[in-house]
Amino acid sequence: MSNRKEGSTVWYIPDGFIPVKSSGNLESHEAICVLNCNEQDAETQVTVYFEDQEPIENIQVLVQGKRTKHIRTDWLDGSGRKIPKGVPYALRLESNLPVIVQFSRMDATQAENTLMTTMAYPAEQ
C-alpha cells in the first residue's frame, strides 16, 4: 500500500436544484455522499450558495472514521435556514481531513424516475 493522500479537504458542487413537485411514490431530492477513509472522524462544514440571497453557512456534519455518510441536501439546516425547493444553489464542503465526495440527484418529476450521480470537484491542495 502507498502513503498517498486519499481525497481532498475542499469540494465544490456547482449545480443544485430540488424540484418543487414530484410524481409517484418517490420524492425528488439530492444528496452529498462523503467517504471518510481515515481512522479519525472528519469534521465537515457545508456552505450553500444562491444566485440572489446570502449563503447558508456553517452547517456542521460529522463523518465517522472509516465510514460513509449520505447527506440529503433538503435536510441540511444552517441557523434555521434550509435550501428552498425550486431555487438553484451550489455547495462547498470543507473537511479537516481529506475525504471523497460524490453528488447524486433523484429526479421524480416525470412518470419515469431518473438518478444522476457525479463526483464533486476537488479543490487543489
Results as ranks from 00 to 15, higher is better:
116 M>W: 09
66 K>I: 08
124 E>V: 08
5 K>G: 02
87 V>M: 13
16 G>L: 06
10 V>N: 01
64 Q>C: 04
87 V>S: 01
7 G>L: 07
114 T>W: 07
74 D>I: 08
47 T>C: 02
95 S>T: 12
121 Y>A: 13
48 V>T: 02
86 G>S: 06
77 D>T: 14
81 R>C: 11
114 T>M: 01
62 L>P: 07
123 A>R: 07
61 V>H: 13
101 V>R: 00
125 Q>Y: 11
75 W>M: 09
22 S>Q: 00
42 A>R: 11
55 P>Q: 02
66 K>P: 08
58 N>C: 15
113 N>L: 03
123 A>M: 09
56 I>H: 04
16 G>H: 04
6 E>H: 03
80 G>F: 02
30 E>R: 13
113 N>W: 11
24 G>Q: 10
4 R>C: 07
84 P>E: 10
91 L>W: 06
105 R>P: 02
67 R>D: 14
114 T>K: 12
14 P>A: 01
45 Q>M: 11
91 L>S: 07
92 R>I: 12
98 P>K: 03
4 R>G: 04
124 E>N: 11
99 V>T: 14
82 K>N: 05
71 I>N: 02
62 L>W: 07
86 G>L: 10
7 G>M: 12
55 P>G: 02
62 L>N: 12
19 P>R: 00
107 D>G: 12
125 Q>R: 14
76 L>T: 15
98 P>L: 03
85 K>S: 11
33 C>G: 07
68 T>P: 02
93 L>Q: 08
19 P>A: 04
84 P>R: 10
75 W>F: 03
2 S>W: 10
82 K>S: 07
67 R>V: 00
61 V>S: 15
2 S>L: 10
13 I>E: 12
50 F>G: 10
82 K>A: 02
8 S>H: 00
89 Y>Q: 04
45 Q>E: 08
55 P>A: 01
115 L>S: 04
70 H>G: 06
15 D>C: 12
107 D>W: 12
15 D>Y: 15
114 T>R: 14
77 D>Q: 13
90 A>N: 01
54 E>I: 12
19 P>S: 07
76 L>Q: 11
47 T>G: 01
57 E>F: 15
80 G>T: 06
99 V>M: 00
41 D>Y: 05
59 I>W: 05
122 P>V: 10
50 F>K: 01
106 M>Y: 03
75 W>P: 08
99 V>N: 01
75 W>L: 05
